[in-house]
Design a protein around this nucleic acid. Structure first.
Lengths: 168, 168
DNA sequence: TTCGATTTAATCGGATGCGATATATATGCA
DNA sequence: TGCATATATATCGCATCCGATTAAATCGAA
């Protein structure tokens, strides 16, 4: 797989070891890189969400953490990290901020003092409920079927990338 | 459009004003949010690229800037920002680092001293050529057709989000 | 049982990303 | 011309994100 991992209709990829028939690296436009499409779509999502999240007083990762804990409370930092695809070096500061805001509690697990268990407070649950009923992000412009397919494809891409990266 | 902008097969969205038939907000799993799929796929791409880019001594945004300039040299900071979906507050520090590394030059445009024109050096072009021939990112696991469709869908999503955000 | 290996969080430094602001240059209009 | 306005870039502070390291607790084999 190429470093640029791109695509062009007239791809000149004839390599024998490209078993997935993915496009070759090379002299392609930025607009043809899947990685760049994801990168820029992520920027666009962040900007689309910013105004709505500002009303909640949260950033995007903070909101994701609240949602993940609402879905399953009393997770350890590692468990929450597995769901959010983040590790403690990123997660700990976010959780400390949310704790300072009063939306969750962090406490060492008495059964294993290495672990820290995270619980939503009532205020945290109320915030989740409030966000649940807000309609502040602008339209993705996709119909439900396209939306479903795209969501599934991106998840598959993500999981394949993670697997390939883990395999070194 | 909901704040969570998610999806569930049995979506209970019956709102009359949801003309795009997108799923409603609400009590859904993190795994069903398109925004989270994009967010986590972006993290996964960053991790898949990191090792390869490390051999080039670049970060991902630095690499993107090199590619964008290789595609079209002598851009202003704003023009480059339009291609990369970034503004000068983010771009300027990146460009200064790349200049310090010797990969590009920044100079005020004599015809309009407000603008700064950015040009790749020979070293910058050689770096782009080197990256072009590296195959370091693991497989996305997608066949060429799926790859093409996904790339197109993500770009459409991005552009719709940008348009919707710009329209306030 | 003991002590080295493993596990879990946290800390630290560097690099984005972004809102707000500052600065310098250019433009437009009376 | 003179000056208010607009434009292009840069600066600053805050919040991720990550590699590397540290600290504390647990585990496990001799």
């Amino acid at each position: 797989m190429s470093l640029t991992n791109g695509l062009r209709a007239d791809s000149r990829d004839n390599s024998i070891d490209n078993q997935n028939q993915e496009p070759a690296a090379g002299d392609r436009s930025l607009a043809d890189f899947l990685c760049f499409a994801i990168y820029s779509a992520n920027l666009a999502y962040g900007r689309a969400y910013r105004q709505g999240l500002e009303e909640l007083g949260l950033t995007y990762p903070q909101w994701i953490a609240i949602v993940a804990l609402w879905e399953q409370d009393d997770q350890t930092v590692s468990e929450l990290g597995d769901r959010m695809f983040l590790e403690s070096n990123t997660l700990t500061p976010i959780l400390k901020k949310l704790e300072a805001m009063g939306y969750l509690r962090r406490q060492r697990d008495p059964a294993d003092e290495r672990q820290v268990r995270v619980n939503l407070t009532d205020a945290g649950r109320r915030l989740r409920e409030k966000g649940m009923h807000m309609n502040l992000v602008k339209s993705s412009g996709l119909k439900q079927d396209d939306f479903a397919r795209l969501q599934k494809s991106v998840v598959t891409l993500r999981d394949n990338l993670i697997k390939a990266t883990k395999d070194e």
